[in-house]
Structures are given as structure tokens and as C-alpha cells.
Design a protein around this nucleic acid. Structure first.
Lengths: 110, 110
DNA sequence: TTTTGTAGTATCCTAAAAGATAGTGGTATT
DNA sequence: AATACCACTATCTTTTAGGATACTACAAAA
């Protein structure tokens, strides 16, 4: 049965990469590791992301319970995004990604 | 300067996800963590990948020095793919991805 | 009261990723 | 000699991600 076990692991890898993969999701999560942020704050952090994409990605991450969206009704139109407990469980993984990335630079295609 | 440091980290995350991201690259690397494999062996491992895609992804990983391709000229048309030293440095990261993936299942969209 | 900021939507469009399918040139098997 | 396996390549098509741009509704600041 250890061959079956391997198949399961491959699916795990694919699933996780589905979640944190894509142009922005990893960076969004990494940015929120730092602290909770508001929509435009994230937007500035990420640099070139469009609002359309950011909205979409945040919704995806919300759906996957990695990010929570809270409206602060008290004082203004203010929305705060933060990592859920589930999202925070990704922190060490993202930390390791950063460490690896700092050691091994990407090769760009000619 | 710690804000600049944050930007760099975000770029690292994006770069690493570029490398291991995509539908197949993570799984290919995970499969090769196990042991070196041949083309069709990988193909069977990954299940539904097409040869066109597998070829492309392997070439990308080769270009990034994560995977090496060796032709065994001695006995037959036999090609062996394996992790380079650089590729092996990803093993702990992939291991952590597997662990996280086994704990936290992906939510699929309706 | 005009301007600025916040938190998005809506529409359109393009480029890249990847599936489907067929074919190729060699080797090994029976 | 025929069949099957290996390691691909070629072509076509679909799907998806994500950029560009413009717009909205609301609130606070100047």
C-alpha cells in the first residue's frame, strides 16, 4: 500500500499548491502574516495587482477559511482582512518558502 | 528599512511559487523526492498529465537546475530524471507542504 | 462643496497553461 | 515479422488567469 500512499502525497502537494499558488495568493498570505490589513493597504503592498484580481483572490482565500474579512461598522467604511487560525497554520510553511527563495534565485527564461 | 525587507519577502514568495507552482511542478518534484524516475514512470505517477505538458514542465525544471535529465546510452533508449542537489534542497519544503496538506483539505468551489 | 480616499464591481480583452489527439523514430519482445 | 513499449514532438483547441480600464457608493477631509 505504500504506492497508494505516494499517490495521496502527490495529491496533497497539488492541492496545497492550488491554494497558495497563482500569481498572488502566496504573497497575500505572506503579507497578512505580518499583520492584518485593509483592502487598499494590501493593494499597495502587492504593487501591481488590480482590484478585480485582489477581490477575487481574497474571496477564494476566504472560502478556504485562510483569511477572514471583517467590516468595522463602528466608525467608517473599513474592512479588515486577517489570517484565520487555519491561515496562521501556514506561517511556518511560508516562512520556509521565504528562506528557500532567498537562497535560491529564480532562473528567468531567455 | 523593514518595509523594504517585507517587499523583498513578498517577491521571494512569488518567485518560489513561480518555480514550484503550476498544475504539475510541485507534484513532479514530490515524485522525484521519492526516487529517480523515467519519463513514462513519471507520467503514470502523475496520472492525467499529457506528454506535451510533462515534457514542458521537465524542461522548465531542468532550466532551473532542480531536475537533471540523463540519457543512459549504455543499454537502450532510457532517460532518467532525478533531483539535482539544488532540487534536493526543496525536499524539506515539499515535506512540509505534504504535512500541511494532509491536515487541511482544500475547499472546492461550487 | 469639490476633492480625496475606501472598498470594491463591471466589462472587455489577451496571453499563457494545459488538455486532446495523433504521429515519430527507435528498441525490445514474442 | 508483428506488436508493443519508450520518449518524446506537433498541431489544434479550450480553459483560465489575470491585466486594463472605467465606474460606483459611501465617507471624511480640505
Amino acid at each position: 500500500m505504500k504506492n497508494k500512499q505516494k499517490q495521496i502525497q502527490l495529491r496533497d502537494v497539488q492541492d496545497v499548491i492550488d491554494i497558495i499558488g497563482g500569481r498572488w495568493r502566496g504573497a497575500i498570505l505572506a503579507s497578512l502574516c505580518d499583520k492584518e490589513k485593509r483592502f487598499n493597504e494590501l493593494k499597495r503592498d502587492l504593487g501591481s495587482v488590480t482590484p478585480r484580481t485582489l477581490t477575487k483572490e481574497l474571496k477564494y482565500l476566504e472560502l478556504n477559511k485562510l483569511v477572514s474579512r471583517e467590516v468595522d461598522a463602528s466608525s467608517a467604511v473599513s474592512v479588515v482582512y486577517s489570517l484565520t487560525k487555519h491561515g496562521k497554520s501556514l506561517e511556518p510553511l511560508i516562512g520556509q518558502i521565504v528562506v528557500w527563495g532567498q537562497k535560491h534565485r529564480k532562473v528567468v527564461l531567455g
